[in-house]
C-alpha cells in the first residue's frame, strides 16, 4: 500500500454510487461514509439493497458509476490480487453464517489462516482457540457446523471473520432469528470487538432496539439514497417522513405498499372506468 489514509478519514467513502440491476435502480448516486473505529448501522426497508451495498464494499459487485473507497483504495478498480489482499483485512459475517460444512468448528476458524499463512500448527491452534474463547465457543471446537444452533453458528462465523484481526467487519443481518439471549451475546460481542480491537464495524439490520444499544451512527437508505442519518437514539424522532414510517412501522408513507406495477384498473380490464 502506497498511500496511507489519514486516521480521521472515513474508512469507507462512497461517492455517487449508481447501480442498476435488471433495469431496477438499486443505488442512485449514493453518498455514504463509514467512520473509522465506530459501529455504523445501515437500515432500510427490505429490498433497498443493504446487502448489495456490503457487496460493493467488498468488491463482490461493481456499480455502474461512482467510487467506493476502502482505506483509500477504489474497490471497483482493484485487480484481483489487490482485491484479495484487501479482503484479507475485511471480515464478513454472512446472514446464514456460511460455515464450511466439510470442516469442524476449529478448522472453519483456522481456514483463513491455513489458506493465507504458513504458520506453525501450534500458533494456528493458539490463535483459533483465542478467537473461539472470545466468542465463548472454545468448548465447541470439535463440533461440526450441522451440530450448532443458529446463534452458535453465527458466533463461530464471527470468530472466523476476526481471525486475522481485520480493520473492518461487515455484519449482514446479524440479529435475524436469534433468541433474546443469543441476541444479547452477539450484541455484546460486536461492542467488545469494536472497543477492544478498535475494529470498524458495519451492521445491516432492521432491529432499531438492538442497534440503539450497539451503533454509533445510523444510515437509513431508501430508493437508492441515504434518506436519513444520525444518532440511533434520536434518529426516530428527527421528523422526516421516512424515519416516521420506517421506525413507526406505518403502512402508508414514502415507502409504497404496492410493488411498482402498471395501472391496476387496466390490468383488470377496466380501462376507461377511471376516466
Amino acid at each position: 500500500m502506497t498511500t496511507f489514509a489519514a486516521p480521521t478519514e472515513p474508512l469507507v467513502r462512497i461517492r455517487g454510487l449508481t447501480t442498476v440491476l435488471n433495469g431496477k435502480t438499486i443505488f442512485d448516486a449514493l453518498d455514504l461514509d463509514i467512520p473509522r473505529g465506530k459501529v455504523t448501522a445501515i437500515m432500510g426497508p427490505s429490498g433497498t439493497g443493504k446487502t448489495t451495498l456490503l457487496k460493493h464494499v467488498t468488491g463482490q459487485m461493481r456499480g455502474d458509476a461512482g467510487q467506493v473507497l476502502v482505506d483509500g483504495q477504489d474497490v471497483p478498480e482493484l485487480s484481483r490480487e489487490k482485491l484479495f489482499a484487501l479482503r484479507e483485512k475485511i471480515g464478513y459475517l454472512f446472514q446464514n453464517s456460511a460455515l464450511l460444512t466439510d470442516f469442524d468448528v476449529f478448522e472453519n476458524v483456522a481456514f483463513p489462516l491455513r489458506q493465507h499463512t504458513q504458520l506453525p500448527e501450534v500458533l494456528i491452534r493458539n490463535i483459533v482457540l483465542t478467537k473461539l474463547q472470545a466468542v465463548g465457543l472454545r468448548g465447541a471446537a470439535g463440533l461440526m457446523p450441522a451440530e450448532l444452533s443458529g446463534g452458535m453458528a453465527r458466533r463461530v462465523a464471527l470468530a472466523r471473520a476476526i481471525v486475522f484481526d481485520p480493520m473492518l467487519i461487515l455484519y449482514d443481518e446479524p440479529f435475524v432469528g436469534l433468541d433474546p439471549i443469543a441476541l444479547s451475546q452477539v450484541l455484546k460481542l460486536i461492542r467488545t470487538l469494536n472497543e477492544t480491537l478498535g475494529i470498524t464495524s458495519v451492521l445491516v439490520a432492521h432491529e432499531l432496539e438492538a442497534i440503539k444499544q450497539v451503533a454509533d451512527h445510523v444510515y437509513l437508505i431508501a430508493n437508492g439514497k441515504v434518506v436519513a442519518q444520525g444518532d440511533p437514539k434520536t434518529i426516530a424522532e428527527d421528523g422526516s417522513p421516512w424515519t416516521r414510517q420506517f421506525f413507526g412501522g406505518a403502512i402508508d408513507g414514502p415507502v409504497p405498499f404496492q410493488y411498482p406495477a402498471d395501472d391496476y384498473a387496466q390490468a383488470l380490464g377496466l380501462a376507461g372506468a377511471r376516466a
Binding site: 467488498t58 463482490q60 484479495f84 489482499a85 479482503r87 484479507e88 475485511i90 464478513y92 454472512f94 446472514q95 446464514n96 456460511a98 460455515l99 464450511l100 460444512t101 481456514f111 483463513p112 489458506q115 493465507h116 472466523r160
Partner: peptide
C-alpha cells in the same frame, strides 16, 4: 455450498 453462501464466504476470505 453455493446455496449456503459457502462459496461467497470463500470469496470474502480471499480464497
Amino acid at each position: 455450498m453455493r446455496a449456503t453462501d459457502q462459496l461467497a464466504a470463500m470469496e470474502m476470505m480471499a480464497v
